[in-house]
Amino acid sequence: MLTNYCYQGDCCAVMRDLVAAGVRVQCIVTSPPYWGLRDYGVAGQLGLEPTLREFLDSMVEVFDLCRELLADDGTLWLNMGDGYVPCRAAGVKPKDVTGQPWRLALALQDAGWWLRQDIVWHKPNPMPESVRDRCTKAHEYVFLLTKSERYFCDFAAMQEPVSGGAHSRGAGVNPKADIPSGWDTSAGGHRALKGRYAGTGVGFGRGYDKVAKPRAKQNASFAAAVAPLVDTRNRRSVWTIPTQSYSEAHFATFPEALVEPCVLAGSRPGDIVLDPFMGSGTVASVAQRLGRRWLGAELNPEYIALQAERTRQPGLVLEVAA
């Protein structure tokens, strides 16, 4: 079986061939065409169906094949943005939000997928809009879907750094957050009580008396013990990631920083990551860089060359010991 390869052709036809060949992938990360957004100029493309219902039916068919390819403990990370009803669509209200991300997610849930998470991709640098009767859209969704309630997820690999007073394991774990109300934490770590306790000698720092020493030692020991535990925390469900420019002729490249946590959490080194809508090859590039193998499908032959350029530098693939 070929890996680190994108098959040029219709994604459903490609995936049927892969299923017939007995291929299994551990993780799928993809961003399909959005309905009514743009014409890529390729016969057979998805996204130009006359109605949203037909588009959703097409997507369910695509992801039924994805589910056949996916390992039983695998995960699907699906990026989908929203849009507005195009003028060409018959029988619909113009300017209506299509709601296609959630319509698709619920359609896939009805088709048998487990819908485990809706992640908001917040774009701090959204595309400017000249509208004056609504807000500028600055987010899309990433849905985490699985084949069952049990699946592989490398929880630690996608954690994020702790910021501010946040902590990862509840109240009383972060030493900075575990300071009683009224304590002054200024002046190089000196902690003295304010208000009615000021000047009493009760505190944590210079001038504290024998009564406070046991508590100070306890706090210091506690802080030293838990310090390694709070460098990172469980990744939140809102990911602030700027869009990433791409100089070549592809209109809808999603950023590598959006793909990376999905690949890290959804696969191990040496596993196969699939993108049935490979486009310019972002998923392939990230998977290869992280030591995963990859497969893809792409209808537009012009994009195959873009993928080859982005994956020209081989990644270090580590095989998992049996």
Score class of each variant (00 low, 15 high):
residue 265 A to P: 01
residue 19 V to S: 03
residue 145 L to R: 04
residue 96 D to A: 12
residue 266 G to T: 00
residue 59 M to H: 03
residue 322 A to C: 13
residue 308 A to G: 15
residue 26 Q to E: 12
residue 76 L to H: 01
residue 26 Q to T: 11
residue 315 G to A: 00
residue 151 Y to W: 10
residue 70 L to S: 02
residue 318 L to W: 07
residue 227 A to L: 14
residue 300 N to V: 05
residue 211 V to T: 13
residue 4 N to Y: 03
residue 295 L to M: 14
residue 255 P to Q: 07
residue 273 V to Q: 06
residue 237 S to T: 15
residue 230 V to G: 09
residue 244 Q to F: 09
residue 30 T to N: 02
residue 205 G to S: 14
residue 301 P to V: 06
residue 197 Y to I: 02
residue 209 D to Y: 06
residue 206 R to I: 07
residue 289 R to D: 08
residue 246 Y to C: 01
residue 86 P to V: 11
residue 15 M to H: 06
residue 313 Q to H: 13
residue 152 F to E: 02
residue 212 A to S: 15
residue 189 G to I: 09
residue 25 V to R: 02
residue 236 R to E: 14
residue 131 V to I: 12
residue 13 A to K: 12
residue 91 G to I: 03
residue 76 L to S: 02
residue 227 A to D: 14
residue 98 T to C: 08
residue 111 A to E: 01
residue 69 L to P: 00
residue 249 A to N: 15
residue 288 Q to R: 13
residue 281 G to M: 09
residue 128 P to T: 10
residue 78 L to F: 06
residue 116 R to M: 13
residue 61 E to F: 05
residue 277 F to M: 05
residue 53 R to A: 15
residue 195 G to C: 02
residue 205 G to H: 06
residue 301 P to D: 05
residue 315 G to V: 02
residue 271 D to W: 04
residue 47 G to W: 02
residue 61 E to G: 06
residue 92 V to L: 07
residue 254 F to W: 14
residue 48 L to G: 03
residue 136 T to H: 07
residue 260 E to M: 08
residue 124 P to K: 01
residue 50 P to R: 07
residue 18 L to W: 14
residue 265 A to H: 01
residue 285 S to D: 08
residue 176 K to F: 14
residue 269 P to W: 08
residue 89 A to Y: 10
residue 43 A to I: 06
residue 183 W to C: 09
residue 137 K to S: 12
residue 77 W to S: 11
residue 3 T to A: 09
residue 261 P to L: 00
residue 73 D to Y: 13
residue 248 E to L: 12
residue 41 G to V: 09
residue 236 R to Q: 15
residue 127 M to C: 08
residue 276 P to F: 10
residue 275 D to Y: 08
residue 73 D to I: 13
residue 105 A to Q: 04
residue 235 R to Y: 08
residue 85 V to S: 06
residue 70 L to C: 01
residue 36 G to Q: 04
residue 303 Y to A: 06
residue 220 A to G: 11
residue 63 F to H: 12
residue 3 T to Q: 09
residue 184 D to P: 01
residue 269 P to C: 09
residue 237 S to L: 15
residue 137 K to E: 12
residue 182 G to N: 00
residue 53 R to W: 13
residue 96 D to S: 08
residue 99 G to H: 04
residue 56 L to I: 15
residue 229 L to T: 10
residue 49 E to M: 09
residue 295 L to S: 00
residue 255 P to F: 07
residue 21 A to S: 14
residue 68 E to N: 03
residue 127 M to I: 14
residue 144 L to T: 05
residue 101 P to G: 05
residue 184 D to G: 05
residue 256 E to F: 01
residue 131 V to R: 12
residue 319 E to Y: 14
residue 202 V to Q: 09
residue 118 D to R: 15
residue 34 Y to E: 02
residue 178 D to C: 11
residue 19 V to K: 03
residue 275 D to W: 05
residue 231 D to R: 15
residue 135 C to H: 13
residue 33 P to M: 07
residue 1 M to G: 13
residue 274 L to N: 01
residue 108 L to C: 01
residue 103 R to A: 12
residue 196 R to I: 12
residue 237 S to Q: 14
residue 184 D to Y: 12
residue 281 G to T: 10
residue 15 M to N: 06
residue 223 A to W: 00
residue 212 A to V: 00
residue 272 I to T: 15
residue 160 E to Y: 04
residue 126 P to C: 04
residue 216 A to S: 07
residue 86 P to Q: 05
residue 290 L to A: 03
